[in-house]
Design a protein around this nucleic acid. Structure first.
Length: 424
RNA sequence: GGAGAGAUGGCCGAGCGGUUUAAGGCACCGGUCUUGAAAACCGGCGUACCGAAAGGUACCGUGAGUUCGAAUCUCACUCUCUCCGCCA
């Protein structure tokens, strides 16, 4: 959510900066609601002041019959206040809903562009492997090794679900442990294991609601929603709190499954593990002082990159353009891992800075010192990494001519020293 | 699922229609005293919104209602705790 006062004072500038996201966002409705709200509020509050002082005067008189006409007059005032407050509530609800549907302002360093095609290459790491045979897709490799079973997953659940078995299941568990250990021991994150279902207030704070309800899986109980990312429960750890400046930065890492409806992506990535209704992810979430947010995005992105480096998987870092960043983000770096089976780089992590956008929605604040007013913290998060896609990258990059897959060295201690997944 | 109890400021806790600008205590911050510290004493100490300011308004779990006036009365809901049942 943007600061209402900032929008009011910089209406044209806000409109222009939002326009770089594409689509059309008009703030004419905002101006109208904002003015109506303030005029109703002023009138209502003046009448309340009058009512309060009259009540005090009436209270001092013992014989109420002497002030019967005053009491009658106040009855009028009260009903007028009620009428004003009723209208005010309608206006404020509308204004609030409008504010909740306005996306974040792109960061000044976010490249301006319309689509994915305008994203900017920042750096790349590692060399795509050369094969003296035709490299296979991960679903071919996985099925041949007997570690991925898509057919049975369809039977159990449906399309866009996967069943890992044997070494596949163990590899995924190893990846989760490996990532969590790296982030907790070397990068200073605190591990958390949050709820996988959250309430509507939590989804609203991080920005999934009210606009993207269709992307979420809902339960019969309407109060609970399945998380599409650990960002939601973890960021909400500090919702409606005033943190101490000395506590910042706060860094959490969490493994959770993620549940996404993938509405509107029917044609895309229909085969394999790339796009699933349920997938595992290790997430990084940090709360920082506003002055540190820019540097923190670089650090956090580096922490996600470190996972790929230790796994020896080639990748590149892209700065998303204004037309491609998410609703709540002001700046985003995507890490794209090389996938030989697709002969392309594909997203494996998305690291974003949200400024005070989520903090304002969620009331996450800190005090500069004991005397000063609370200010909003800045929040950031990134995948560190998407576990299913990491499995895909390992299968495709580390495949051998004989159909076996060599396990990256860093992962072997988590697999009882296993060096390869042998071809059956 | 059944029965009961409760929800007040960072914490404890009083208040149960108008002397509450929410008592009192603890914690915290500033000061006096002291060689220093402690103690004692004095003062300060919530959040949000409207306003150029002065100032005003709202908030005692949430939402409605009664009343000239609600932390206080009524209704609904939510959450927490205790016991019973069920359960990994």
């Amino acid at each position: 959510m943007l600061d209402m006062k900032f929008i009011r004072d910089h209406l044209d500038q806000v409109e222009q900066r939002l326009a770089t996201r594409g689509g059309e966002i008009s703030l004419a409705g905002f101006r109208q609601l904002d003015e109506r709200r303030r005029s109703l509020l002023t009138e209502s509050e003046q009448l309340k002041a009058k009512k309060n002082s009259a009540s005090e005067a009436i209270a001092k008189v013992k014989d109420k019959s002497q002030v019967a006409d005053q009491i009658a007059a106040m009855k009028e005032v009260s009903s007028r206040i009620k009428a004003l407050d009723d209208e005010l509530k309608v206006v404020e609800d509308e204004l609030q809903h409008l504010l909740l549907t306005i996306p974040n302002l792109p960061h000044p360093t976010t490249p301006v562009g319309r689509s994915e095609a305008d994203n900017v290459l920042i750096r790349s790491w590692g060399e795509p492997p050369r094969f003296d045979f035709a490299p296979k897709n991960h679903w071919e490799i996985g099925e041949q090794l007997g570690i991925l079973d898509f057919e049975r997953a369809v039977k159990i659940a449906g399309a866009r679900f996967a069943l890992s078995t044997g070494a596949g299941a163990r590899l995924e568990r190893a990846l989760i442990s490996f990532m969590l250990d790296l982030h907790t021991t070397e990068h200073g994150y605190t591990e958390v294991l949050p709820p996988f279902m959250v309430n509507r207030a939590s989804m609203t704070a991080t920005g999934q609601l009210p606009k993207f309800e269709d992307d979420l899986f809902k339960l019969v109980d309407p109060d609970f929603l399945l998380i599409p990312t650990a960002e939601v429960p973890v960021t909400n750890i500090h919702r409606d709190e005033i943190l101490k400046k000395a506590d910042l930065p706060i860094s959490y890492t969490a493994y959770t499954p993620c549940f996404r409806r993938e509405a509107g992506s029917y044609g895309k990535d229909t085969r394999g593990l790339i796009r699933q209704h349920q997938f595992n992810k290790v997430e990084l979430v940090t709360f920082v002082h506003p002055d540190d947010a820019d540097a923190e995005l670089e650090r956090l992105t580096g922490h996600a990159e470190r996972v790929l480096q230790l796994l020896e998987l080639p990748y590149r870092v892209m700065a998303l353009c204004s037309g491609d960043i998410g609703f709540s983000a002001c700046k985003t770096y995507d890490l794209e891992v090389w996938l030989p089976g697709q002969n392309a780089y594909r997203e494996i992590s998305s690291c974003s800075s949200f400024g005070d956008f989520q903090a304002r929605r969620g009331g996450i604040r800190f005090r500069e010192d004991d005397k000063s007013k609370p200010e909003f913290v800045h929040t950031l998060n990134g995948s560190g990494l998407a576990v299913g896609r990491t499995l895909v990258a390992i299968l495709e990059n580390c495949q051998q001519a004989d159909g076996s897959v060599v396990i990256p060295k860093a992962l072997r201690p988590y697999l009882g020293g296993m060096e390869t997944i042998p071809s059956p």
